[in-house]
Design a protein around this nucleic acid. Structure first.
Lengths: 183, 183
DNA sequence: TGGGTCATGTAACCTGTTACATGATTAG
DNA sequence: CTAATCATGTAACAGGTTACATGACCCA
């Protein structure tokens, strides 16, 4: 139950349309929680049924009509409750398909594995670049939000991203070197 | 489509029952891909329908009967094909609910956030401990498998775990310090 | 005239989670 | 006597992915 909570988090800053939420997600949270556009629309629907938000249809002339979502008290309560409760495997059980592949890479040749690790390293480098962009889009949002303290935590999450990708690159380098030595 | 591939990976080392696969998963891959027992049984069923494996019922007297699964050629091909293809976001888009929470933690008090980060740090330390155990269970499996090169990659995946948790702890320490300073 | 932005979705399918059910044997 | 190990699952629900559909407006 996490995409719903991410959406609650954004809507707590102010009313938004599905389209805007989709963009906000892709510009910031995407690195920790990638969401499909279609899923966002579906979840908004189901959240409305749950009473977590209300919607208002806004007619436009030059552009397509849109639907503006607003948090209800229940929605705000749900957000608070999610933020409030911690469980014992937070940040621990993270599904990582790449690592699972590595686990079984004895089935591949050393050359293939070196290639795969180099690709992975490249992907991490690209992700770091995108983090830079996320940084500037965070700055952009910061200026729109009244309560600037809130955006402080956006920076912290982005910083985790730096640590994460830097470490992943270091690991990949180390393993590549080792594989090239035994070749 | 990843639990299926994890199961294929194990079955490639030799025929196993659902119960044994469940244990193997929990003793090794669990840190990168936590799987429910019930899901393992269901997936095995669906994999058999896909023709990736065959099953043989084994009757026992003292213990409950069991079902031994064996890879088919199709199953082995599927494993190879999964290992062979890389995509552009491997290891990049990893869903992390904890980070999403951090992202919205402006809604919580600084004290609550310090508490949550300390809990997170503690969880990471526990995970590191478990990695030690995983290490020994990897050693255990190593001795059962003929082709010891395969187990080399198990160690590499575990090593990623070390890097990962060590970095997470470092990050948490840094943020806790920062939060305590501004308090 | 072709691609980007704005804006919303549906349908089918696949994957993951939670709760529950059963029951014998064995070791401390 | 009680907890762990062995061994298998079902049912219901929740969440995520992929593919597809529509259509206007604007800029180069």
């Amino acid at each position: 139950m996490s995409l719903k909570h991410g959406l609650l988090g954004f809507l707590n800053y102010g009313s938004m349309t599905g389209y805007e939420l989709d963009k906000a997600f892709k510009e910031s949270l995407d690195l920790f929680w990638m969401a499909q556009t279609s899923q966002i629309y579906r979840e908004l629907n189901s959240m409305e049924k749950l009473g977590w938000l209300t919607s208002e249809r806004i007619l436009q002339e030059d552009k397509p009509n849109k639907k503006l979502y607003t948090l209800t008290k229940q929605g705000r309560d749900e957000l608070k409750s999610w933020l409030g409760k911690s469980n014992n495997n937070e940040g621990i059980y993270v599904k990582n398909g790449f690592l699972m592949k590595i686990f079984f890479s004895g089935e591949r040749s050393t050359d293939e594995n070196i290639k795969a690790l180099k690709k992975y390293k490249y992907n991490c480098e690209k992700a770091l670049e995108r983090l830079g962009k996320t940084g500037s889009s965070i700055d952009h949002y910061k200026n729109q939000i009244l309560d600037k303290d809130k955006a402080f935590y956006w920076g912290i999450a982005a910083e985790y991203g730096y640590y994460y990708y830097m470490t992943s690159i270091k690991w990949a380098d180390e393993i590549i070197k080792r594989l090239e030595d035994i070749k």
